[in-house]
Nucleic acid binder design. Structure first.
Length: 282
DNA sequence: AGGGAAACCCGAACGC
DNA sequence: TGCGTTCGGGTTTCCC
């Protein structure tokens, strides 16, 4: 589902073209159809529909899983949540089931926001900072060094998987990339963040960046029926692989619930307790 | 502070 | 075949 790599893939398509659509930079808004009112998370509908008219797209940015359409005077921020997707098409193209908003441009094209499950939201604001004020660092932020990451983990006493998915701790990971990163780093999802060693923290940060990079390189993951075009799902090592053999050791991959989320791991590669005396448990 | 549960949604997958 | 039930994904909110 849309996690950082999927949102980044969509961002690049809107900025530079791709995924079957053209770049939208410089395009001017002519009209907006809001087909499902609750899509707009804040502000009033009329103000939004009136004020966006005539504005041009300056840039398409991303922060964590938020997509930021930057216009002359406002930002239109999207969160795709579970099933959101964006298409750019000529107006003659038929609208689709579950389209929740249509942004018409003066050049005869429109941007369609499609969201089967209606979890996605948009914000129309002057300053995007107010939307993402509580987000943690970007995973690729250069100031997020291995030693800083270790310190941040030490300060918390939480299960590592829910902590990595907490957007105020680290912004961008979702269920899939978290499971894959923990597998690469050989860390059990239930490990207490305070028990992670310096070396493990280093490996984990590398794994997070590796997995996200691979996801972006593959244009994201197409799983279920919701996301178009990505191939990263073909490289999954643990996500959805429960019952299959681990590619490293042959042990059967298991699935369990952690913080209400399906969690996939190799019980041999990712051990919760080490038997070696002298190594702290947990 | 941390963690669990529920809510928001829909369609696919499953069970009978 | 057809019906009812379960599941899952990201986030927020509420409660212990």
């Amino acid at each position: 589902m849309p996690e950082l790599p999927e949102v980044e893939t969509i961002r690049r398509a809107l900025q530079h073209g791709g995924r079957g659509g053209a770049a939208i930079i410089g395009w001017q808004v002519q009209r907006v159809d809001l087909l499902w009112d609750r899509l707009l998370a804040t502000g009033n509908k009329k103000g939004f529909l009136d004020e966006i008219n005539g504005q041009k797209v300056i840039a398409v940015n991303r922060r964590a899983k938020f997509l930021d359409l930057e216009f002359d005077r406002h930002h239109l921020i999207f969160h795709l949540r579970m099933s959101g997707d964006i298409r750019v098409e000529e107006n003659q193209h038929p609208f689709q089931k579950h389209d929740r908003m249509l942004l018409f441009f003066e050049n005869g094209f429109h941007l369609a926001f499609n969201d089967t499950r209606k979890f996605g939201r948009i914000w129309f604001v002057k300053d995007p900072q107010e939307i993402w004020a509580n987000l943690g660092p970007e995973p690729f932020d250069e100031t997020l060094t291995a030693s800083l990451f270790f310190d941040l983990l030490q300060r918390k006493k939480r299960k590592i998987k829910p902590l990595l998915m907490d957007q105020s701790f680290l912004a961008g990971l979702g269920n899939i990339y978290t499971d894959e990163a923990l597998f690469q780093a050989k860390i059990h999802p239930l490990r207490n963040s305070g028990s992670i060693s310096q070396l493990e923290a280093e490996n984990l940060l590398v794994a997070i960046r590796d997995q996200l990079s691979e996801g972006i390189k593959n244009n994201g993951s197409s799983i279920d029926w919701v996301y178009r075009g990505g191939n990263f799902q073909n490289t999954f090592q643990v996500y959805g692989k429960n019952g299959k053999e681990c590619s490293i050791c042959g042990t059967v991959i298991e699935k369990m619930q952690v913080g209400q989320r399906g969690t996939h791991f190799c019980p041999s590669c990712q051990v919760l307790f080490r038997l070696n005396p002298g190594i702290k448990e947990g």
